[in-house]
């Protein structure tokens, strides 16, 4: 590949002899032009995204509160917030566990896996089925999150649709929002979010050349073998993109859980994002809340880096590079 590419690149560039300095100048000019064009966006990103992130990090080392003497006269307290956070009984471990549950059940299983399976089976279905199921899934995604939360609240709460349904069959309904709130919010989030993975995987599956599938069928590969050895490796870049986006989106999800359960009952659905909000804005411990935000940020970053690394090691990301 490279032996072919290099002369081709040389041929299109300036001719040797009068070109050495010109090439450097041209490259520098191009770089400057590029930088100038990117600059407005870069400034926007640094000011509106970079600065708040840095400020959050800085605040996490202070004792700033929403009200009280330290609301305005706060001091740097070193690692005190982190020490308190990592002390047994702070609630951090419990919240990390709930966030991971939410990520696995609603993110990995409910969104990524379900979205992939939907896309995989629908890609082999008749157009009508594909259009109908696809439309339903996408409509769920189009509904605003707060409306989804309310719909699921009405469905699962005391006296809700689910309870009525159970009563029709003479069954006793244990309010899921109380008896199993994590499962309740995970179902709602999966219902809403599966569409994103479905769309992403549908596009990736459509990109697999038909002759590859046909050739594997001629070679006598079973459906399972075709899926695991052909389809999945070919869409691995889409899988990584999906996992990164879903991990960050699910770990940071707040509004759906807060609207459905408020993090309760008690602390039963107190995932990290709700734990952070409660500490910062209900308990008024602003700096302590920012320390939780930093932990949440690091968790997402570590997981995202892990996916990319694992898949790179398998060499399946060649097409991404």
């Amino acid at each position: 590949m490279s032996t072919v590419a290099e002369p081709a690149a040389g041929a299109s560039g300036p001719t040797p002899g009068r070109g050495g300095n010109v090439t450097v100048e041209t490259r520098a000019r191009r770089r400057l032009t590029g930088l100038t064009m990117v600059a407005p966006m870069l400034i926007v990103v640094l000011v509106f995204m970079g600065w708040p992130a840095v400020w959050t990090f800085v605040l996490s080392f202070t004792n700033m509160t929403v009200t009280g003497p330290t609301a305005t006269h706060y001091q740097f307290v070193g690692l005190a917030n982190y020490r308190e956070l990592f002390t047994y009984g702070s609630g951090l471990l419990d919240s990390v566990g709930k966030s991971l549950y939410y990520l696995i059940v609603s993110g990995y299983i409910g969104q990524a896996a379900l979205g992939f399976l939907l896309a995989y089976f629908l890609s082999r279905s008749a157009y009508g089925v594909r259009a109908a199921v696809g439309a339903v899934v996408i409509v769920a995604w189009l509904i605003p999150e707060i409306v989804t939360s309310y719909m699921w609240y009405v469905l699962l709460s005391d006296g809700g649709v689910m309870q009525q349904g159970y009563h029709v069959f003479g069954l006793n309904y244990q309010t899921w929002l109380i008896s199993n709130p994590m499962l309740a919010v995970s179902l709602a989030n999966a219902w809403r979010g599966a569409a994103f993975s479905f769309l992403l995987f549908s596009a990736a599956l459509d990109g697999i050349p038909n002759d590859l599938i046909d050739a594997s069928e001629v070679d006598g590969a079973s459906s399972w073998r075709r899926l695991t050895r052909l389809t999945i490796p070919l869409v691995s870049s889409a899988i990584v993109v999906d996992l990164v986006i879903i991990t960050l989106g699910t770990l940071n999800d707040f509004s759906l859980i807060y609207a459905m359960t408020g993090g309760g009952p008690g602390n039963a659905s107190n995932v990290l994002s709700v734990f952070m909000y409660r500490q910062a804005f209900s308990n008024y411990q602003l700096a302590y809340g920012t320390a939780i935000a930093v932990v949440l940020l690091l968790m997402g970053a570590v997981l995202a880096a892990l996916y990319i690394r694992l898949l790179r090691r398998q060499g399946s990301l060649a097409d991404m590079r």
Binding site: V66, T67, A71, T72, A280, F281, S282, Y284
Partner: peptide
């Protein structure tokens, strides 16, 4: 929706 959120918002405006 809750009183404590009102106080948080109010205190933030007072800054």
């Amino acid at each position: 929706s809750s009183e404590s959120e009102y106080y948080s918002k109010l205190d933030l405006t007072e800054r």
